[in-house]
Design a protein around this nucleic acid. Structure first.
Length: 286
DNA sequence: CCCATCAGAGCATGCGTTAG
DNA sequence: CTAACGCATGCTCTGATGGG
């Protein structure tokens, strides 16, 4: 772990608003209609359809050089807009370089472990007094501790160790995603921005200290404009395979007037087209 | 076989209850 | 009244396990 003095962090990193901001948008975002509110959360399609968690551990190993470094991973995918036009998108994932015990950096791409942590953080964000949303600056912050994440994962049946949670958070804040729409750059940033962590020493000095991180603009924008859909997040976390989770998320965002009489169908060819990363990389390769 | 994941021990702190 | 204790929480570390 790099030891950064608190003061230097303050200079380099944006800080959340010092006072809680009363925001109607945030209140609406964190309200759910469900029997058991612990089971539901929100999903944001604009952010969700950017494929970022499709590499597995083995694939990462192959991408790394002998020194443990890795190049940008570029990947093209398609998105259908409101009018049914298919737009070409592409994404460059710059891996996070994380210092190992030998002092050298090793490259890590976001994987399914990070996907689950992201969902948990979004859930924690909707808990009053842990989420901070500034509608004017379009910024959303979440406050959390390792144990909150761990407890939540344990409750949902996918327990992780502190070291793994720590590693995942580091990967999420240090990787850089560049998204292109039709060749034009539309987003550069990490999954968790301006992440301010609490290490052991800080924790011992103040046991109330919480980690703080900012969500990508897509999430903040969705909170502002209420472009989010409620979904059964407990079921989502229960899905083991990436492909299962992808199909589930797709159903959530597409199956708008859901009831028992209404059907929603999609073709295998569509899956190949839109989920290229997941299908070709983890399923079709021997 | 390797590596991610898991299980559990250990250590620090705070808070509420109870025995002396 | 207060020291002692149980209990909950937060975090780290190491060795075991099992799937690809």
């Amino acid at each position: 772990m790099t030891v950064i003095k608190k003061k230097s962090v303050k200079k380099a990193v944006k800080k959340p608003p010092s006072k809680a901001i009363k925001s109607l948008q945030y209140d609406l975002f964190s309200q759910f209609l469900a029997k058991d509110e612990s089971e539901v959360s929100n999903t944001v399609e604009y952010w969700e359809r950017i494929p970022k968690y499709f590499l597995s551990a083995q694939e990462q190993n192959k991408l790394r050089t002998a020194e443990g470094l890795a190049q940008l991973y570029s990947y093209e995918y398609k998105v259908k807009d409101k009018h049914g036009n298919i737009l070409p998108y592409s994404i460059d994932i710059q891996p996070a370089l994380i210092k190992q015990s030998d002092g050298k950096g090793k490259a890590f791409f976001p994987t399914k472990a990070e996907e689950i942590i992201e969902e948990v953080l979004k859930k924690i964000f909707t808990e009053q007094n842990l989420g901070v949303h500034d509608p004017r600056k379009v910024e959303s912050w979440v406050k959390f501790s390792y144990s909150m994440i761990r407890r939540e994962l344990k409750n949902k049946g996918c327990e992780r160790k502190y070291s793994q949670i720590k590693h995942s958070l580091e990967v999420m804040s240090k990787c850089v995603l560049t998204v292109y729409e039709d060749g034009k750059e539309i987003y550069i940033g990490s999954i968790l921005q301006d992440y301010c962590s609490v290490d052991r020493a800080e924790y011992l000095a103040d046991t109330e200290a919480l980690h703080v991180a900012r969500f990508p603009i897509f999430i903040s924008h969705a909170v502002n404009t209420l472009q989010a859909r409620q979904f059964n997040y407990a079921r989502f976390l229960g899905c083991e395979e990436q492909l299962t989770r992808w199909i589930y998320k797709r159903l959530i965002n597409r199956f708008v007037n859901a009831n028992y009489m209404n059907t929603y169908h999609f073709l295998y060819s569509d899956m190949i087209l839109y989920s290229k990363g997941i299908l070709t990389i983890s399923m079709l390769k021997p």
